[in-house]
Write a protein that binds this DNA or RNA. Structure first.
Lengths: 135, 135
DNA sequence: AATAAAAGATTACATCAGTAATCCAAATGA
DNA sequence: TCATTTGGATTACTGATGTAATCTTTTATT
């Protein structure tokens, strides 16, 4: 597994913009964040620079400006972060977290149905038959 | 809901020790972390100090030493942190996270049964019955 | 051409976090 | 009693993070 650079919370906001669409110029990113993050343009540029240093993003030069794009996938990130989060808060035990959510969060009945369906799938597979990723 | 002080990752390790049993002396905490965190005793003491400053823990004096105990519950913490984590990574949408876990993690059939049971409860309650404001 | 505007590079500065070491006062041991 | 150990308080130092401003170089304006 490749090493994912650490991305701070502020940097994450920039990544989200680039994950949602890329490549984009710095100004486009700045605009996209406007009204939502209350950051000065220079701040966003700093974050972009840091993401470059971390090799989380890269750019293609087009004339005088750069077009930035992500080098890491959001999925990989979410996966990794979730893993370490669960480990940290729940000691790696996923069930307590699931129980927590199922109990505390409001889920629509559609969502509940879908979750049930997924659980059914798992039941069919059986708990000992481990290893396959079906998605 | 009361304001929970921010607890860093290193501090969290100390909190876990105190949540697992309290009150404890600094030395007991240090010992409990030994072999697991590879921290010098002074480091642990620093973390304890910082947790004191943050009012995450407190102590009773007993002679020359202090007995430390948590001021915040682990549950409150897990709750709050989970909330902000999900918000940050999943845009506040819990379902994708649940789906992610149900799919990726290996759950025993017992666990699956329990989760199903919980989902059934929710179904009975109905999806429109909302009652809590969380933001 | 001289000047202003704009993009990216560099520098800034405070706070937090990780990781301790040093200082001081009380208790303990010689 | 004097030196040593030990608990807690204070101080230290590095790197990351939030949040920019300034500098430099190009390009667009007048």
């Amino acid at each position: 597994m490749k090493e994912l650079p650490k991305i701070s919370e502020a940097e994450w906001e920039v990544m989200k913009i680039l994950w949602s669409r890329s490549p984009q110029t710095a100004n486009e990113v700045i605009e996209a964040l406007e009204g939502q993050m209350d950051w000065k343009p220079k701040t966003v540029r700093t974050l972009i620079s840091r993401l470059l240093q971390k090799n989380a993003i890269a750019f293609q030069e087009t004339g005088r400006t750069y077009l930035y794009y992500p080098l890491v996938s959001q999925d990989d990130y979410v996966q990794t972060e979730t893993q370490s989060f669960v480990k940290r808060l729940y000691g790696g035990a996923v069930k307590p977290l699931l129980v927590h959510f199922l109990r505390e969060q409001k889920l629509s009945s559609d969502e509940i149905s879908e979750l049930k369906r997924i659980l059914d799938e798992k039941t069919e597979e059986g708990p000992d038959r481990d290893g396959r990723k079906d998605r």
